[in-house]
Write a protein that binds this DNA or RNA. Structure first.
Length: 803
RNA sequence: GCAGAUGUGGCGAAACUGGCAGACGCACAGGACUUAAAAUCCUGCGGGACUAACCUCCCGUGCCGGUUCGAUUCCGGCCAUCUGCACCA
C-alpha cells in the first residue's frame, strides 16, 4: 500500500499557511527566541534550483525542532529581486523587469510552499519594493554622511560592441559573452564604500562569533592583513619620491629595480622626461584589455617595459636603479608600485631573468646560493650593510627604525581588501539617492523624500557611453539642490545587488514598519540572527559586505549588536547526475517541481538530507531518491502494526533513548544524513518485531517530523493522537538508558583483530584479561610467541603485542 | 597565480577526542508471495587465496614516507578533482 502523498501534502500545507501555524510571535516576553536565516533567493526565470531546498530544509528542520523545544522562532523568507538577468531579459524582449520579477516571485512562492517549509510568510520581503529599498537608500545616505561613501575613478569592463558596462561574469575570454566584441577597461567615476576602514574590526570580531573555521580563515585571507613598511625611493634628479609597500623591508639592500603598475600616475606626471612613451602607451593599452584576475593567471610569462628617462635611488645602497612597468604589479594593492628583490621573490626573479636585471642575494640560508630560482625562505642577512648577520625579525625591526629615523619610510599595516565599488550603470537596481550641484557638490536627497523611486522607462538599453538607462531621463535627472536650491542633477547609476542583501535580515524582524528599518524592540528582541546558513561562495563578498553594514549601523546606534550573525554554516552544492554543476547547456538540470510531483515533498526533503554530508557537494541520483520514497512507504505501513502501549517496550527501550539522543545531537551538528540512517534502522527494527506501540510510534513520528512533516502529521492523526505534532514537545531521553550493560571488546594481536569478547561495562583489567586468554582464537594467535606488551583501554579494546 | 575544500566497495556514504573499516541506502543476486510481472517481505553482498561447506589466512580508506601497541583519523612530501577570486547571485 503506497501512500497518497499528493493529497496529504496539499492538505497540511493548506492548513499551515491558512492558519499561520509557523508565524513568529510578536509577543516578546518569551525569553527563548531563535532566529534562523537562509539566503533569500534571487527569483530567476528558471525557477527554484534543487540546491535551494537543501539549505532551506536544513534550517527548516532546526526551526521545527526549536519550536518543539519551546522557542519563539523567526524563520522568514523573501526575495532578492534586483539584478542583471531580469534587466538583460528586458533589453531583449522589451518586458519591464518588474513584470518578469513579479511573475518569477509568484512561481517561486508556489514552489517553496509545495515543499512545506515552515516559513513565516506574513513577513515576506522583496528588495525591489519601494517600501523596502527606501531603507536601503536611507542606509546609503547615512554612510555618505559619515564619510564612508565617496566618488572615485575606477576601471569597469566595457563592451566596445554593446557600449555597455559588463559584469565580470559577462566577459568570457576577454570578449563580451553576448556580442563577442572585445571588452576593454574603461575609467568611470563611481561611488565607493569604505569597507577598508572596517578591515581590522572585521578580522578581530570573528573571534566572538561561531562561524565555521574555514569561513573565518577565508575571510581573514580575503581581508589579507599584512605588516610591512612603506618606503620612499627618490626619483633621480627630482625631490619627488616613488613610494612602495613591502612586507620585507629587511631585503631592501637587494632591491635592484622597481616596477610600477601600468595605471600608475607617475607616468603621466613625468611624461615629458620619458623617452619611450609610445612603447609605454602601447603596453598600457594591452594591459587595459586584461582584468586583474587574467593578469595574475596568464602571467606565467612575465611582460614589461622599462621606463626610459626615469630612474630611482635605493635609499640604502644609494645606487641608481631602473624603473619598469609590468602588469604583474596591481594598481589596487599597496601603492601600485614595488621594489623588486629578485634574489628572494619568485615573481621578481622570473622578471629579472627575462629582462637581464641584476640579482643581489641578501639572505643566506646556510646551504645554497641562488641556483634555479629565488631563495624565499628566512635566512641570515648578507650584503646588507648594517643588517648583516641578523635574522629576519631583528633585521625588520632595525631597518624600520632606520627608515623612520631618516624619514625614508615607516611601518605600515596593509590589507588586500579593497573598497567596495558601489555604482552600476544599470536600470534594475536601487537609485542612488544623491544629486550633484555645481555649488554644493554631491548632496543626499532629504530623507523625507525617500524612497527615491525608480522611474518608469521605455527603453532599457544603456546610453552611448555605457551610462545607466536612467541617464536618458532628462526630466527625472533635473532637480534642485537640497542645500542651495539651485539647479542640480541626479545620480543616474544604481546600486549593486549586494546592497539589498546587506541588511535584509533586519527587515524581517519588523517588515511593515514605515518609520524605521525596524523598531527598536524588534531589533532588541530578535538580534542577532542565531543561525545563518548559506553557500561558501558568499563567504567573502555578501558575508563581509553585510558584516560591514551591520557594524556601521551599530556605530550609529541603529542596531544593538556588533555582529549580525551569531553562527554561520554552509551547505555543499548539488551537482547533476554526471557530477558536474547543473546547467541548461549541459542538460543535467533537475526541476524541483518534477521531483515533488513524482515523489512528493517529504521524499524530496528526506533525500536531500540523506544524499551526503551537508557541507559537501553531492551528485543527484534518481535511484537513491526512490530509496527514500520506499523508506516513507515503510513508515506509512507501520500503522498496520500499531499496538497499544503508553511506555516503550522492553525490546525497544534502549534503541528509543539512543535514537532520541542521536537525532537530537546530529541535527545540531547538521549531520542530517546520519539522522535519516537512524530512522531507517529504527524502521528495520520495528519490522523485525512486527509491531510498534503507540508510545514508540509517537516518539518516532515526532523525531521524523522536521524531516518529513506532512506524512508524520497525517500518521499522527490516523493513530488517533489528538493534537498536531507541531504542538508537541521535543522527545527527551534518559542518558542512563542509552548506556549498554554489556560491551563487546575487540581483541587484537599486533593490531589485527583476532576475536571479540563480551564483558560487563567497566570490568577491571584483570577480569578482562582472564576472558581474553580464555578465547581459543586468542590462544592460537599467541601460541609459541613471546608476549611483549598488553594494552587495555577500558570498555574499548584489548591489544596484545607479540614477537 | 592566490585562497578554501575533497579523495573510503560497483555507486551515495558511516566510523563521537587515534581503538572491530564499510552502519544506512542504491544497484546487484537468491528466496517467499503471484497464473505472471510490478510492488511488498526475507536473505546475501569490499577484493583475493584455501575449502564441498564452515574454518582460516592475506590485501584494502588517492600515492610515498613518518609517529604509535594500534592511523580513514596525527605529521611531512606528492598526485588528482571541485569551488571562489571583488560588476553573477
Amino acid at each position: 500500500m503506497a501512500y497518497n502523498f499528493k493529497e496529504i501534502e496539499k492538505k497540511w500545507q493548506d492548513k499551515w499557511y491558512k492558519e499561520g501555524t509557523f508565524n513568529a510571535s510578536t509577543d516578546y516576553t518569551n525569553p527563548k527566541k531563535w532566529y534562523g536565516l537562509i539566503e533569500f533567493p534571487y527569483p530567476s526565470g528558471q525557477g527554484l534550483h534543487v540546491g535551494h531546498p537543501r539549505s532551506y530544509t536544513a534550517l527548516d528542520i532546526i526551526a521545527r525542532k526549536r519550536r518543539m523545544q519551546g522557542y519563539n522562532v523567526l524563520f522568514p523568507i523573501g526575495f532578492d529581486a534586483f539584478g542583471l538577468p531580469a534587466e538583460n531579459f528586458a533589453i531583449k524582449n522589451h518586458i519591464h523587469p518588474r513584470i518578469t520579477t513579479e511573475k518569477n516571485i509568484a512561481h517561486f512562492t508556489e514552489q517553496l510552499k509545495s515543499i512545506g517549509f515552515s516559513f513565516d510568510w506574513s513577513r515576506e520581503i522583496n528588495t525591489t519594493d519601494p517600501n523596502y529599498y527606501k531603507w536601503t537608500q536611507w542606509i546609503f545616505i547615512q554612510l555618505f554622511k559619515h564619510g564612508l561613501a565617496y566618488k572615485a575613478t575606477m576601471p569597469i569592463n566595457f563592451c566596445t560592441g554593446c557600449k555597455v558596462g559588463l559584469a565580470n561574469e559577462e566577459v568570457v575570454n576577454g570578449v563580451c559573452e553576448r556580442c563577442g566584441s572585445p571588452v576593454i577597461q574603461k575609467e568611470k567615476s563611481e561611488w565607493m564604500l569604505k569597507i577598508t576602514e572596517y578591515a581590522q574590526r572585521l578580522i578581530d570580531d570573528l573571534d566572538d562569533i561561531d562561524f565555521l573555521e574555514k569561513i573565518k580563515i577565508q575571510q581573514r585571507n580575503w581581508i589579507g592583513r599584512s605588516e610591512g613598511a612603506e618606503v620612499k625611493f627618490q626619483i633621480t634628479g627630482t625631490s619627488d619620491n616613488l613610494e612602495v609597500y613591502t612586507t620585507r623591508p629587511d631585503t631592501l639592500f637587494g632591491a635592484t629595480y622597481m616596477v610600477i603598475a601600468p595605471e600608475h600616475k607617475l607616468i603621466e606626471k613625468y611624461a615629458d622626461r620619458i623617452t619611450n612613451m609610445p612603447e609605454i602607451e602601447e603596453y598600457k593599452r594591452q594591459a587595459s584589455l586584461k582584468s586583474d584576475f587574467e593578469r595574475a593567471e596568464i602571467n606565467k610569462d612575465k611582460t614589461g617595459v622599462e621606463i626610459k628617462g626615469i630612474t630611482a635611488i635605493n635609499p640604502l645602497t644609494k645606487k641608481e636603479i631602473p624603473v619598469w612597468i609590468s602588469d604583474y604589479v596591481l594598481s589596487t594593492y599597496g601603492t601600485g608600485a614595488i621594489m623588486a628583490v629578485p634574489a628572494h621573490d619568485e615573481r621578481d626573479y622570473e622578471f629579472a631573468q627575462k629582462f637581464n636585471l641584476p640579482i643581489v642575494q641578501v639572505l643566506d640560508d646556510g646551504q645554497s646560493l641562488v641556483k634555479d630560482g629565488a631563495m624565499v625562505g628566512d635566512g641570515i642577512h648578507i650584503n646588507s650593510g648594517f643588517l648583516d648577520g641578523l635574522n629576519k625579525e631583528d633585521a625588520i625591526d632595525k631597518v624600520n627604525k632606520y627608515l623612520e629615523d631618516n624619514n625614508i619610510g615607516k611601518k605600515k599595516v596593509n590589507y588586500k581588501l579593497r573598497d567596495w565599488v558601489f555604482s552600476r550603470q544599470r536600470y534594475w537596481g536601487e537609485p542612488i539617492p544623491m544629486v550633484y550641484c555645481e555649488h554644493c557638490g554631491w548632496q543626499p536627497i532629504p530623507e523625507e523624500e525617500l524612497p527615491l523611486k525608480l522611474p518608469e522607462v521605455e527603453d532599457f538599453e544603456p546610453g552611448e557611453n555605457g551610462e545607466s538607462p536612467l541617464a536618458k531621463m532628462e526630466d527625472w535627472i533635473k532637480t534642485t539642490c537640497p542645500v542651495c536650491g539651485k539647479e542640480a542633477r541626479r545620480e543616474t547609476d544604481t546600486m549593486p545587488q549586494w546592497a539589498g542583501s546587506s541588511w535584509y535580515f533586519l527587515r524581517y524582524m519588523d517588515p511593515h514598519n514605515n518609520n524605521a528599518l525596524a523598531s527598536k524592540q524588534a531589533l532588541e528582541y530578535w538580534s542577532p540572527v542565531d543561525w545563518y546558513n548559506g553557500g561558501m561562495e558568499h563567504t567573502t563578498l555578501h558575508l563581509l559586505y553585510s558584516r560591514f553594514w551591520h557594524k556601521f549601523l551599530y556605530d550609529i546606534g541603529v542596531v544593538p549588536t556588533k555582529e549580525p550573525y551569531q553562527k554561520r554554516t554552509s551547505h555543499g552544492m548539488i551537482l547533476g547526475d554526471n557530477g558536474e554543476k547543473m546547467s541548461k547547456s549541459k542538460g543535467n538540470v533537475i526541476n524541483p517541481d518534477d521531483i515533488v510531483n513524482e515523489f512528493g515533498a517529504d521524499t524530496f526533503r528526506v533525500y536531500e538530507m540523506f544524499m551526503g554530508p551537508f557541507d559537501q557537494s553531492a551528485a543527484w541520483s534518481m535511484d537513491s531518491i526512490r530509496g527514500c520514497l520506499k523508506f516513507l512507504d515503510r513508515v506509512w505501513n507501520m500503522q498496520t502494526m500499531l499496538v497499544e502501549g503508553d511506555t516503550y517496550s522492553k525490546e525497544t527501550e534502549s534503541m528509543m533513548h539512543k535514537a532520541i539522543k542521536k537525532v537530537t545531537n546530529d541535527i545540531e551538528e547538521m549531520k542530517f544524513n546520519t539522522c535519516v540512517s537512524t530512522f531507517m534502522t529504527m524502521v528495520n527494527e520495528f519490522y523485525k518485531l512486527k509491531r510498534i506501540n503507540k508510545a514508540e510510534f509517537k516518539t518516532f513520528l515526532t523525531l521524523l517530523n522536521p524531516f518529513a512533516p506532512h506524512i508524520t502529521e497525517e500518521l499522527n492523526k490516523l493513530a488517533g493522537f489528538e493534537n498536531d505534532i507541531s504542538t508537541y514537545n521535543w522527545p527527551k531521553y534518559d542518558e542512563a538508558k542509552t548506556i549498554d550493560d554489556t560491551i563487546e571488546i575487540p581483541v587484537q594481536v599486533n593490531g589485527k583483530l583476532k576475536a571479540t569478547i563480551n564483558v560487563l561495562r567497566d570490568t577491571d583489567e584483570s577480569s578482562v584479561k582472564i576472558a581474553v586468554y580464555d578465547n581459543t582464537s586468542v590462544q592460537n594467535a599467541v601460541k609459541d610467541k613471546q608476549i611483549v606488551k598488553e594494552i587495555y583501554v577500558k570498555n574499548k579494546i584489548y591489544n596484545i603485542v607479540v614477537k
